[in-house]
Write a protein that binds this DNA or RNA. Structure first.
Lengths: 159, 159
DNA sequence: ATCGACCTTCCCTCTATGGGAGGGTCAAGG
DNA sequence: CCTTGACCCTCCCATAGAGGGAAGGTCGAT
């Protein structure tokens, strides 16, 4: 049953070989058996688990939470309340981040709308950055609780 | 006029001393003059610039964009159209991220609502993770354009 | 024999921020 | 004069999640 190489496992699970190795080193998945040539071998069960992880990542679950979900998945004595709790906490965290982003987006959009966007150099956007530079951000602080060290949002790109 | 130490500059600008040094190494701010004891010295102009940066970060601008904004700020031949363009691109990027997060949050909320949350182990959330593990994410792919290598969302925390 | 497609490990990069070690500087107070 | 404490300095490390790429082993087919 343990017959797939990491490449096949990647294809079937949708998780890249690189990430499969990574999940192994951080202990999300078990250390796989090796062939004589030292190649990792995976079976149907591993693919299942990898797909579970991929789906959970696609739903935005951080790896730390996925670890808990996998534990619950394996636990035949689990109660659905635990799973639900994780889901609700995750949804709430996403809602918080959305509110934060939305507040920033609204401010930027407001400023952009107020900017003529012509050849002149007067610009309300730069004015704001200069003048309002004493206030804190819109919703830049994440409200304690389960908050992480990083409070400001990191946009992937913008220009 | 150049009389402040980095600590004072941090207090007055709201940017931590650590980050002031960091912005210096990545070239966001100029290399400051030093005292005889090798301490950095800052003046009113530096504080102004640091506040500008802080405000821009609070609005979610990535550092790369702030670099451009600072260039425009310094440029007395700038046209407001350039600044507006940066703002609109940034707002659009945030809106894209919000849509992505919202799609994920709605899915997770839907699943959580469908989960009894009691002592039993049946759970639609885990079912989804297992069953739907072949589909890609809700809106997990960011649509080309200005997209970065990272397509999935990284939540700061969730549980 | 050799080519190409795999696999292995190890290290580096990205974003933005902070922690902490190990050591220098300086003013106040004993 | 010396200590204490509050600064400052420069490095290195860590975070989260993914990927790039080098240097080398393995294997099947030509």
């Amino acid at each position: 049953m343990n017959d797939m190489t990491i490449g096949e496992a990647a294809n079937r699970s949708g998780v890249s070989a690189k990430m499969i190795r990574h999940y192994e080193t951080i202990g999300l998945i078990a250390t796989p058996a090796r062939q004589e040539n030292n190649y990792r071998t995976y079976g149907a069960g591993d693919i299942h688990r990898l797909r579970f992880i991929r789906r959970a990542r696609a739903l935005g679950y951080p790896v730390a939470t996925i670890r808990q979900l996998l534990t619950l998945w394996d636990d035949t004595n689990r109660s659905s309340a635990d799973v639900k709790q994780l889901a609700q906490a995750h949804a709430a965290a996403m809602r918080r981040k959305i509110a934060e982003l939305d507040a920033m987006a609204r401010t930027v959009e407001y400023l952009a709308a107020a900017c003529a966007g012509d050849h002149r150099l007067d610009c309300p956007i730069l004015e704001d950055l200069i003048v309002n530079s004493q206030q804190s951000a819109a919703v830049a602080r994440d409200d304690g609780d389960l908050a992480h060290p990083v409070s400001m949002v990191n946009m992937g790109s913008a220009a």
